[in-house]
Simulated assay, not measured.
Amino acid sequence: MSGALQLVELYTRHLAINGDMGNTLVLTERARLAGIDVEVTRYNPGDELPEQVDLVTMGSGPSSALRAVADDVARIAGTVRGWVDSNVPFLAIGGGYQLSGTSITGLGAEPIEGLGVFDAVTDAAASRAVTACFVVDSDLGRLVGIENHGSVTALGAGERALGRAVTGRGNDGGGFEGARAHEAIGTHMHGPMLAMNPAVADHMLSVAAAAHGLEYVTNDAHARLDTLAAATRAHLDPSGAVARARGEA
């Protein structure tokens, strides 16, 4: 077994808008600061997936990109679901979150079949939701980022949401955002999400490192990055209105 964690970034050429592939950079840099190497495989349609996988990221893209990768999604879906069932940390953002569900409608005559990581159906023909200070309370803490999507997502009866949307539409305006399955996270949150919410990155790295026989321990260098993240989160909500609304300030 290689001493480095193996990270697969899915559909780098197609799902790289909104800076969401920055989540890969956050994971690799925070791992490096903890003395752990990460080898990144940037996967595109038709490529072969590596045999060993410790972390997976997937960013966002326009509707044309979702259609462009649809056939390949069907090809690799079983493999990706196997990773998730084995508790490999997986992060899918925006369009990647939609592709990680059961299906996407509203992008053509026929639905696009997703990876099936989450029991979730997305209607991509909804009105656009843009939230400059998108806040979600989750069991990984309070998450802060930016929401920008023209879709509504319905979770299956037994599927767990990532958290409760304090602001913004979230999945469908009903108060919940994203999805969780094993160590997989799907969300509409941009930022990049992990740069704004380093606690999520640390959770993913801790799980991946432990499965690989390594220990992930943060240090002062991480704390300095966390200070920048906290300042950025505060910049999105300079008045503190969200915190006051929840009785935290």
Rank of each mutant, 00 (worst) to 15 (best):
D139T: 13
D20K: 07
V117W: 13
I17D: 12
V56N: 09
N197K: 04
L10R: 03
A234N: 11
V84K: 00
A129W: 08
E9M: 15
H188L: 12
G174P: 13
V166F: 11
A125M: 05
A223Y: 08
G175L: 01
D172Q: 07
T79L: 11
R224A: 12
L27M: 01
G150S: 03
P45K: 02
A221G: 10
L10G: 04
T12R: 07
R246M: 14
A201W: 00
G186N: 06
L7A: 01
E113P: 13
A249M: 12
L7T: 02
A16F: 15
G101Y: 06
D226R: 08
A68H: 10
Y216A: 01
T131R: 00
G191V: 03
E113N: 14
G170P: 08
P111A: 05
V73I: 05
L140R: 02
L33V: 13
V40M: 04
A70D: 00
A34Y: 03
A223P: 08
M1P: 14
R233E: 13
S86D: 15
V8H: 05
H190R: 01
M1L: 15
G186H: 05
V88Y: 03
F176E: 15
A211S: 11
M193Y: 10
N171I: 10
A34H: 04
H188R: 12
G145A: 06
V80A: 09
L55V: 08
A92T: 05
E147D: 06
G3V: 02
N18W: 04
M189I: 06
V207Q: 11
I36S: 01
I112P: 09
G116L: 01
V69K: 02
T24S: 05
T12C: 12
S151Y: 03
A124W: 05
G145N: 07
G213A: 02
I146M: 06
N44Q: 13
E110C: 10
N87T: 13
Y216N: 03
N171W: 07
V84S: 01
A132P: 15
G158E: 15
I146K: 00
E147F: 05
C133W: 13
L236P: 15
V200I: 00
A70G: 00
L27K: 02
I36M: 02
A211L: 09
G178A: 04
G170C: 01
T187E: 11
I112Q: 09
V200D: 04
H149S: 09
V121Y: 15
V38L: 02
G19M: 03
A65D: 10
F118N: 07
Y216K: 02
R81F: 06
A109R: 13
E48I: 11
P192W: 02
G116Y: 00
S100N: 05
T187M: 10
R67V: 13
M204W: 03
D85T: 11
V53T: 05
G35M: 11
S151D: 05
M193N: 12
D85L: 12
R128P: 11
T41L: 02
A249S: 14
I185H: 01
E51V: 04
R81T: 09
D220W: 09
A181M: 14
R81D: 12
E51G: 05
I76V: 14
E183T: 13
R224S: 11
P89N: 04
A201H: 04
D72M: 03
A125R: 04
E51Q: 03
S86E: 15
